[in-house]
Computed example of a mutant assay.
Amino acid sequence: MAATVLLTGGTGFIGEYLTNILLANGFLVSVLSRSSRNNTDHITYYKWNPDEDYIDEEAITSADYVIHLAGEGIVEKRWTAKRKKAILESRVKPIELIYSVLQKKNKSLKAFVSASAVGIYGAETSDEICTENTPPANDFLGTTCQKWEGAVTKIESLGIRTAKIRTGIVLGRNEGFLKKLLPGFKMGFGTILGTGKQFLPWIHIEDLCGIYLKTIQDEELNGPYNATVLDKTTNETLSKTLANLLGYSIWLPKVPAFVLKIVLGEMSIAVLTGKRVSSEKIKGAGFHFQFEDLKTALSNCVS
């Protein structure tokens, strides 16, 4: 009988793409959703509401694997105190809720895989190449990722194999990072943010989902893995490459950092800073990227 993978955040951009990858590889998929949805031949939907500590326990007891993707968008709204709390709790509370059911039902899993982010290395720009052994930062992004990953330790304490996928910006066809960027670029208004020298660790959606698939299939994988391409892509590099693919050269002046700070507040650090991030660990585990060239990846997303 086919194994079942339960997804949190399964109705989002990454979740929907990953669902198709899992189905194509012979898995059954179940999805936790806040709203009622009709089941299909291969996808079963279960209700939950982490804010109210509610989950249909059958979602957990019927699962062989869990992939945790749920979480409020980092750059969707200004970082007020309330928003920061929501960003953190939307990542941690679901793990705690799943842990409580696993413990209560004495249920084991073949693996629990959680999303994380390269933000764990901190919001600053430097030439440092961060590896999974690089110490976490003490800023908002760094501490949020630490607590996010820390919650997974509870699952691990039950004797369940766990993995944490530290993701960079995700490139997909009119989705993810490009969803907000493309409209302006397509109208010829592409520009560079700040100095443009901040690094942008990126990954194509196909490769990201491939990494999730590998963590399910490879019993040797556990702990943190960076899910990014190691190159020297900066905000300026990406902006110029994208504009070129759309048939023009950037003509607008750079958006000064102080303007972004006024418009976005503290959240501006998410677009004004960036480090290089190593992918050697996941490659060493046998994973092969399909997209390691920025122009090829962007072309695939905008063609």
Rank of each mutant, 00 (worst) to 15 (best):
D56V: 09
D56T: 04
A59R: 04
A59N: 03
I60D: 05
D64E: 11
Y65F: 14
I67P: 07
L69G: 13
L69Q: 13
L69M: 14
A70M: 10
G71S: 03
G71K: 00
E72K: 13
G73E: 09
G73W: 04
G73K: 11
W79I: 01
T80G: 15
A81P: 00
A81N: 02
K82H: 11
K84A: 07
A86P: 00
I87H: 07
L88W: 02
L88V: 10
E89C: 07
V92S: 08
K93N: 11
P94D: 11
V101R: 08
K104H: 12
N106D: 13
N106H: 11
N106F: 06
A111C: 12
F112L: 09
S114W: 01
S114R: 00
S116R: 02
A117G: 12
V118M: 10
G119H: 10
I120G: 03
G122I: 04
G122F: 05
E124P: 00
E124I: 06
T125I: 11
T131V: 12
N133L: 15
P135Y: 06
P136W: 04
N138P: 05
D139T: 10
F140I: 05
L141I: 07
L141G: 09
G142E: 12
G142N: 13
Q146Y: 03
K147Q: 15
W148I: 13
E149L: 08
G150F: 08
V152K: 00
V152H: 00
V152I: 11
T153Y: 06
L158M: 15
L158H: 01
L158R: 01
G159M: 03
G159S: 06
I160A: 12
I160T: 01
I160M: 11
R161Y: 10
A163W: 02
A163D: 02
I165D: 02
I165K: 00
I165H: 01
T167W: 05
T167E: 07
L171T: 07
L171I: 15
G172M: 07
R173K: 15
N174C: 00
E175I: 14
G176M: 04
F177H: 05
L178A: 01
L178Y: 01
K180P: 13
K180I: 12
L182P: 14
L182G: 12
L182R: 03
